[in-house]
Amino acid sequence: MPTARTRPEVLLDDLVDLFLAEGFRTFTLAQLAARLRCSKTTLYALGQSKEQLTVNAVRHYFRRATAQVETETAEAASSADRLVAYLAAIGRALRPASPAFRLDLAAHHVAREVYEHNIAAAAARVRQLIGDGVAAGEFRDVHAAFIADTIAATMERIQTGRVLAATGLHDADAYEELASLVLDGIRSVTAAGT
């Protein structure tokens, strides 16, 4: 049974949604309070400054996205399905991020560090998923750390919009292509034939 969310939790979700849609650099605290229909004092409960509020919102976004990605990944039956589910769920989690949000994320030192930390965590998770698939015989014996690092570099390019600029593929589609490319490269001959 889901628990009732508090007003600060709802407000933080609303703030994240606003930032994803419009970015965060140009907002003042007064504008944020007006858009979220709350007082500046209420916003200060989420962060003592606009800087802290921004970082807290970005962290919340990545925690929220990670929880959803892991929920979707856990529902998959095989190692291959889990890897595909993981990458596809990341694509869906990033879909609401507007170009303005991406530019602001890249330009904001601390927010960018939060993003880079999450990319590193995603690479570690991919490495684990590949290792599980190798152990289960679904994937051939590959260098999981190299593949995870390559995926992380591609994830960075997707997030910053460079894949879209170079290929025309939007995030979710790019993640689906990435999953297909990786699976085709690591699936064991035995698993591929079944």
Score class of each variant (00 low, 15 high):
Met1Val: 15
Pro2Asp: 05
Thr3Arg: 15
Thr3Lys: 14
Thr6Asp: 13
Arg7Ser: 14
Asp13Gln: 10
Leu18Lys: 09
Phe19Tyr: 12
Leu20Ala: 09
Glu22Pro: 07
Glu22Ser: 10
Phe24Lys: 00
Leu29Asp: 13
Leu32Met: 03
Ala34His: 12
Arg37Met: 07
Cys38Gly: 01
Lys40Cys: 02
Leu43Gln: 06
Leu43Gly: 03
Leu46Glu: 02
Thr54His: 03
Val55Pro: 08
Ala57Glu: 03
Val58Asn: 08
Glu70Thr: 12
Thr71Arg: 14
Leu83Glu: 00
Val84Lys: 02
Ala85Asn: 03
Tyr86Ile: 06
Tyr86Leu: 02
Ala89Pro: 02
Gly91Trp: 00
Leu94Phe: 12
Pro96Lys: 06
Phe101His: 00
Leu103Glu: 13
Leu105Trp: 03
His108Ser: 11
Glu113Lys: 08
Glu113Tyr: 09
Val114Ser: 09
Tyr115Thr: 15
Ala122Asn: 09
Ala123Leu: 07
Arg125Glu: 08
Gly131Asn: 14
Asp132Ile: 11
Gly133Phe: 06
Val134Thr: 06
Val134His: 01
Ala136Cys: 04
Glu138Lys: 03
Phe139Gly: 00
Phe139Asp: 04
His143Gly: 13
Ala145Arg: 14
Phe146Pro: 00
Ile147Tyr: 05
Asp149Asn: 10
Thr150Ala: 10
Ala152Tyr: 08
Thr154Ile: 12
Met155Asp: 03
Arg157Ile: 07
Arg157His: 13
Ile158Tyr: 00
Gly161Ser: 03
Arg162Pro: 07
Val163Gln: 00
Val163Trp: 00
Ala166Met: 08
Thr167Ile: 03
Gly168Arg: 05
Leu169Cys: 08
His170Arg: 13
Arg187Ile: 14
Ser188Leu: 08
